Simulated assay, not measured.
Amino acid sequence: MKKSLIALALTLLSAPAYAFPVTVDNCGTPLTFDAAPNRAVIQDINMSEMAFALGLQPSIVGVTGITGWYKLDEAFKRQQGSIPELAPKYPTIENLVAANPDFFFAGWYYGMKPGGDVTPDTLAPYGIKTLVLTESCVHLDKNRPAASMDLLYGDIEKLGKIFGRDAEADKLVSGWKAELAAIKGKIGGNGDTRVFLYDSGEDKPFTAGKFAMPSALIREAGGVNIMDDMETSWGTTSWETVAARNPQFLVLLDYQDDAGYQKLLNFLKSHPAMKETDAVKNERFVALRYAEITPGPANIEAIGKIARAMHPEAF
C-alpha cells in the first residue's frame, strides 16, 4: 500500500502542471483566465487552423467567417469535423451569444472592426473573453514592431497557455523553427530579391506593408518586400511606386475563385508600367492562398513555396 501511494505521488509530480489562473498579453493589455475555456468560437480560416493544430476541437463550439470567402479543402473539413459555422463572414453579437461561448479568437478586420458591434468590450458583458490576433493589434496601436514570425509563434504559445496545452504549443513552434532553419541553410545569403505581393485592385494595388505577415514570410524565404516602408499592415499604394521599385518576384493571392491568381497575372501583363518590371517580364511568381499569407500554421509551407520558386537552384 505504501509503495502504491509513493508511485501515485511520483506520477502526479511528473504530470504536466496546468496551473490557473494564467495571464497572456492581449495587444498590450493583460487577459487572465481562471480555467481553460470549454466553449470557444474561432474566427477565420487561419485562426481555426491554429486551434486545430493544438487539437482544441473538443473545446470549440463554432467557427465563423470561413465559407463566405473561401473554398475549403478536404484537410480543413476533416479537422473541422462536426463543428458548426455560426456565420459565413463577420459574426453578429446574436450569432455569438446564441452559442453561449466563453472565448472568442478573432482580430481587428478578422471578424471585428474598431467601434463595431462585435469587440472585446461588447462581448465581455456576456462572459466572453476575446483573444485578439497579434498581427491585427497595429490597427489600434501603431507602436508595434514590424512583422516577424513571432506573430505566429506568440499566438500559438498564448493559445497553448490558455487551453493548458503548453507542451503541444512548444512542440509545434520548435518544429516550425527547425523547418525554417533548414530552408535558410539552403538559400544561404540570398536575401535581397525584390518582392511585391499583389492581393487585388486595378486602380490601386492592395498589398502587404510593414506590419503584415507576408513581410515576414518573404524575409524568411530570402527576399525583401518592396513595400516594407508602408507604415500599415494591409493597404493600397500606386502602380507608379511599385513599377519604380521594379520587383523581381511576385506573390499573387489565389482566392481560388473561377479565375484564381491568373486574372492578377493577366492584369499585370497588360498594365503599361508593370509589364516592364523584371518579375512580370520573366513571369517569376508564386500563388498563395489566404490561409498561407495570414498568421497560421500554413505560413511554414508558404515560406517553403516562396523560397523554392524564388531560389530554385538552392533546392
Score class of each variant (00 low, 15 high):
residue 65 G to R: 08
residue 48 S to T: 13
residue 75 A to Y: 03
residue 15 A to L: 08
residue 114 P to R: 08
residue 272 P to L: 00
residue 230 M to K: 08
residue 29 T to D: 06
residue 120 P to C: 14
residue 134 T to L: 09
residue 64 T to I: 03
residue 233 S to R: 04
residue 31 L to M: 06
residue 197 L to A: 13
residue 39 R to W: 10
residue 50 M to T: 06
residue 69 W to G: 07
residue 160 G to H: 02
residue 37 P to T: 04
residue 27 C to N: 06
residue 79 Q to H: 06
residue 185 G to Q: 07
residue 194 R to W: 13
residue 160 G to I: 02
residue 101 P to L: 09
residue 313 E to V: 00
residue 118 V to Y: 02
residue 287 A to G: 04
residue 301 E to Y: 06
residue 225 N to G: 04
residue 15 A to V: 08
residue 255 Y to K: 12
residue 170 D to N: 12
residue 286 V to K: 13
residue 169 A to S: 09
residue 134 T to K: 15
residue 55 G to E: 02
residue 41 V to N: 12
residue 8 L to A: 12
residue 215 S to W: 06
residue 112 M to C: 02
residue 228 D to A: 14
residue 3 K to H: 15
residue 263 K to S: 11
residue 181 A to D: 15
residue 261 Y to E: 04
residue 271 H to I: 02
residue 59 S to W: 06
residue 242 V to Q: 06
residue 38 N to C: 01
residue 66 I to L: 03
residue 212 A to E: 11
residue 224 V to W: 10
residue 289 R to L: 14
residue 30 P to N: 02
residue 8 L to C: 10
residue 37 P to D: 15
residue 223 G to V: 01
residue 123 L to K: 04
residue 257 D to K: 08
residue 202 E to L: 03
residue 208 A to Q: 04
residue 181 A to M: 00
residue 177 K to P: 00
residue 236 T to L: 04
residue 241 T to D: 12
residue 136 S to I: 04
residue 252 L to G: 01
residue 218 I to G: 02
residue 62 G to N: 10
residue 73 D to S: 00
residue 183 I to T: 15
residue 173 V to S: 11
